[in-house]
């Protein structure tokens, strides 16, 4: 009896969580324009999606910003994690706290704060400002995923490499970098995922007609719900799901930190 209760409770929870997405996905294949009446299977909205210039341009910006921002934040985060791993005591705790704060900070606050800063400094809102914003919010996640790798890396490992005849540069390339690489890759994937699914911060930090996919969906939705939006949202959902799956698989293999998982889910 209690087993049955447990199972049905779990079922209810998952229904509650995934029913909206299921509806979204199902109606993205609907033949008619209606988002409430099913009138047959069709891929026409997906086809239309790839003929819409606005959406293709948003896709380009989304991918360009995700790629560039995750590359830059991976490099920055890795160096920061190295610095943090060398720190000791109370100051390290302080810096880690400073690092974690933006993760917990509401996106809306981060977004408006960045916008105010850009306006204050007279920077024109557009591609560059959105890129900088994405680097800003991704870097702490990279730090969190690379830091444990530096912790695992005993200082003896570097000594051992030098002892066996490796110059410091050779030891860095052949020992240190490969040992922390799993954390770096997880950090990169995480930054990439976060960038793709961000809406709030992007919304406040872009301008001049530069929109990413989530902003594009938002402005389309304001003009009325079209099945095209369903199709686009479905594709984004699947992309993020796939990336998340890869990250979690890596985390299970001990390739990085598991912590920000919940937050990534919440952001979706």
């Amino acid at each position: 009896m209690s087993r049955w209760l447990q199972k049905s409770y779990l079922f209810l929870i998952f229904t509650f969580l995934y029913a909206p997405i299921a509806v979204l996905i199902v109606f993205s294949f609907n033949d008619s324009k209606s988002t409430s009446n099913w009138s047959g299977f069709s891929l026409r909205w997906y086809a239309e999606l790839f003929q819409d210039d606005k959406i293709l341009s948003a896709l380009y910006y989304t991918l360009a910003i995700a790629l560039i921002s995750s590359l830059i934040s991976t490099v920055m985060g890795t160096f920061a994690a190295f610095g943090l791993s060398q720190m000791r005591g109370r100051f390290k705790g302080f810096v880690l706290g400073v690092n974690n704060l933006p993760i917990l900070n509401p996106d809306i606050v981060t977004g408006i704060a960045l916008m105010s800063l850009f306006v204050f400094t007279g920077t024109r809102l557009g591609f560059m400002t959105m890129l900088m914003a994405h680097i800003t919010f991704s870097t702490p996640y990279v730090i969190l995923s690379v830091l444990p790798k530096f912790k695992q890396l005993s200082s003896e490992m570097l000594d051992a490499a030098l002892d066996l005849g490796a110059t410091p540069w050779y030891a860095f390339r052949k020992v240190i970098l490969p040992e922390i690489m799993p954390g770096i890759i997880t950090g990169f994937l995480m930054a990439f995922t976060l960038s793709i699914d961000d809406f709030v911060i992007s919304f406040f930090t872009t301008g001049g007609g530069v929109s990413n996919l989530s902003i594009e969906i938002y402005s389309m939705a304001r003009r009325g719900i079209k099945p095209e939006i369903n199709a686009l949202s479905t594709l984004m959902f699947l992309t993020v799901l796939l990336l998340l799956f890869v990250i979690n698989r890596r985390s299970e293999k001990g390739a990085g930190v598991v912590l920000p998982k919940t937050d990534t889910l919440e952001r979706m």
Partner: peptide, 29 residues
């Protein structure tokens, strides 16, 4: 510098390179 000294060291916690297999660990030097 340590990498030019004619001595080798066995460390307390072995300090093997976990990204390399056993053959490559021994072949490192």
């Amino acid at each position: 510098p340590p990498y030019e000294r004619p001595v080798n060291t066995i460390f307390q916690r072995y300090a093997l390179f976990t990204h390399l297999n056993i053959f490559e660990n021994i072949a490192f030097g």
